[in-house]
């Protein structure tokens, strides 16, 4: 099943064209990795999948992004889109409030106010994010006091709390140590059973470890998109080969 169908997507920041006609199909319950050098448009494409680019002044989008066949730049409500398509950022960004309130923020935004329901959501999402045992006695403590790795897993849990269908992750481990990175990768692999995941990464080992499919970006275009195994063992394009063998980028 195709979750996201991106058709000839062009994106402009003012006069600058950041995406030059992207065609890509993202499968349900798979991990799709976006790789490529800095400024190649991979984060921009990720952000356009839940319209975070709306917040950038002078940003203009042409083309179609279909989520389950529905154009997200058409009639679909942005609030509903962002509930269905969650996002995890490069730097852990827990809100300066308690662990509990961090998780409950999303559900409260979408109208859930009863305490017992929120309690239940907080517990199940923290369990899903494999961080319940570490945090169950610290639910009322400030999330800012957690370690970087715990903060990032909390942010993943926070995104899961609104029961999304897709998780977008923008270099989620680039600010973390190897052990925290390992835990997050494990978590991502576990989450694959229930969610479609798109991950931007600078770390090619990470892409080979966790992703099913990989797209290689260069200068606002998708150069190659294939099964991760094929792309890394037998790239069809010379530029892909140069990049994954470390000749540039």
């Amino acid at each position: 099943m195709i979750k996201f169908d991106i058709q000839n997507l062009k994106l402009y920041y003012g006069d600058y064209q950041a995406l030059k006609g992207i065609d890509l199909a993202i499968e349900e319950r798979e991990i799709t990795a976006f790789i490529g050098p800095s400024g190649c448009g991979k984060s921009t494409l990720l952000k356009s999948l839940n319209r975070m680019n709306d917040l950038v002044e002078g940003c203009r989008v042409v083309g179609k992004v279909l989520l389950d066949g529905e154009d997200i730049y058409g009639a679909l409500d942005v609030t509903e889109l962002r509930r269905r398509v969650g996002m995890v950022f490069q730097k852990p960004n827990p809100f300066p409030m308690s662990v509990y309130d961090n998780i409950a923020f999303g559900p409260r935004t979408h109208g859930i106010t009863q305490k017992h329901k929120l309690d239940e959501i907080v517990e199940t999402t923290l369990k899903n994010a494999a961080i319940w045992d570490e945090l169950k006695d610290r639910l009322k403590k400030s999330a800012i006091a957690l370690s970087g790795g715990q903060q990032q897993r909390l942010c993943i849990a926070r995104a899961l709390a609104v029961q999304p269908e897709v998780l977008l992750m923008d270099e989620p481990t680039s600010a973390l140590d190897p052990i925290s990175t390992g835990k997050i990768e494990e978590l991502i692999l576990d989450l694959k059973r229930r969610y479609s995941i798109v991950i931007v990464t600078h770390n090619m080992q990470q892409a080979t470890r966790i992703s099913d499919k990989t797209a290689f970006f260069l200068l606002g275009e998708v150069v190659e998109f294939d099964e991760t195994e094929n792309l890394f063992s037998a790239p069809r394009d010379k530029r892909t080969e140069d990049y994954i063998t470390g000749r540039f980028g």
């Binding site: 996002m87 923020f105 995104a159 609104v162």
Partner: peptide, 23 residues
């Protein structure tokens, strides 16, 4: 990043300003 986090969860500008930024 606080604002992004809030918008990313589907919160509108009003909720983001009064629940996240102002506190």
């Amino acid at each position: 990043s606080y604002r992004e986090g809030s918008f990313g969860l589907g919160a509108g500008r009003l909720r983001t300003v009064f629940r996240i930024v102002l506190p």
